[in-house]
Nucleic acid binder design. Sequence first.
DNA 1: ACACATGGTGACCACCTGGTCACCTTTACC
DNA 2: GGTAAAGGTGACCAGGTGGTCACCATGTGT
Lengths: 210, 210
Amino acid sequence: MASNRQTFENLPEEKRGRVLNEATREFADHGYQGASINRIVDRLGIAKGSLFKYFGSKEGLFEHVFSRAVADFKGPLKAIRDSEGDFFTRIGQSLLAGAAFIDGHPHIYAIYLKMLFNENFPLRERFLGEIRRAHAKYLGALVDDGIAAGELRPDIDRGMTVFLLHTTLDRFLQHHAVPSLDTGIDPAPRSTEDRVRAVTDFLRHGLGQR
Amino acid sequence: MASNRQTFENLPEEKRGRVLNEATREFADHGYQGASINRIVDRLGIAKGSLFKYFGSKEGLFEHVFSRAVADFKGPLKAIRDSEGDFFTRIGQSLLAGAAFIDGHPHIYAIYLKMLFNENFPLRERFLGEIRRAHAKYLGALVDDGIAAGELRPDIDRGMTVFLLHTTLDRFLQHHAVPSLDTGIDPAPRSTEDRVRAVTDFLRHGLGQR
DNA sequence: ACACATGGTGACCACCTGGTCACCTTTACC
DNA sequence: GGTAAAGGTGACCAGGTGGTCACCATGTGT
């Protein structure tokens, strides 16, 4: 059946939201393959035919859910890029903004992580490429500003610095979202703010002027 | 049906190896839910009943495959811990050993990454906990040696340092295994050795004595 | 020659999957 | 009231799933 997405757009906003939330949760909990259309419609209390009228297929549903999520991803970054503060302050703000996004959209971030390491998600390349480019552009701009302002060592390699920053921020967020990544050694679990401070201090030693 | 794992152990080694390889590949390619017993036995050219005689269930098969893999994980680490060289040299060796392990066992590492971010793998807590503890113990010992030898700043926090090291090494290996984590900016892709050098230099600035 | 154990087989089962579509209900307009 | 369009429905489908089990093949000991 051809999808008729207009039908979905015509729905009352409350119902649209419920449908998307329930679908997002299902994909987050079970991945793409494991997600069950039957469970979604059961929880929603609507007929299966309706979902297929809206989105045409399972893949169409996923595409709708995740492309909305990608748009949400990009929002908070822009605000920080335009904000004041030195390089390391803005990195700290980025960490906090990322953590806040995860806390506010845990299901979406869970889907993102599953997609990162699962080759058989549909549209994987398109979505990951989009996110990756946005992230790299964002960090590259921060690094350029930091160098221009003399806050970073002048001898650092821009590409490698972006890679290391990306590494550190991404893993910080993975840790925030999936605590089982804990080392299991640290006896005093820290607050998010404490961890942000430790990470930025570490980067300051590694990258900053002295 | 009760599993009869002895039957599997009695098999000629060549057949045992083929079965485990094919099963590992299937789990790596499709995750736990997506893996298909039918595909495995088709590729092996054996009857489905045989597999169930060996392992009793899909979960039993997975348990056998991955517990063998966990044992392999731990091997290379021990060799480095007992090796000579200063702290940062040993960290560099760890990175290379990890990269070599991934190159030699790409399917196993793929399963590990999927399990990290997928809650509905069976036995997830048990396996991840085991790996995590081994890793933390290993890094903790390296840090202790580094402090004792005066190679690390004396004011660093052991727990946080282990976390940061774990962060950096783990992400380095994720990048090695899944190149789509690339920032997409760096125009000159580096060799593994070059990246190891860049990472250890970075850590030296952040953690080392000056 | 017979018995017994061991490994191997594949048709079969109940269940679930994504997807279809002929039909019903509701709303809106004349 | 009549009509047409849009939204909503759920029994049904073909195909795949993990799992079962009665039966077969082979070898070994007596």
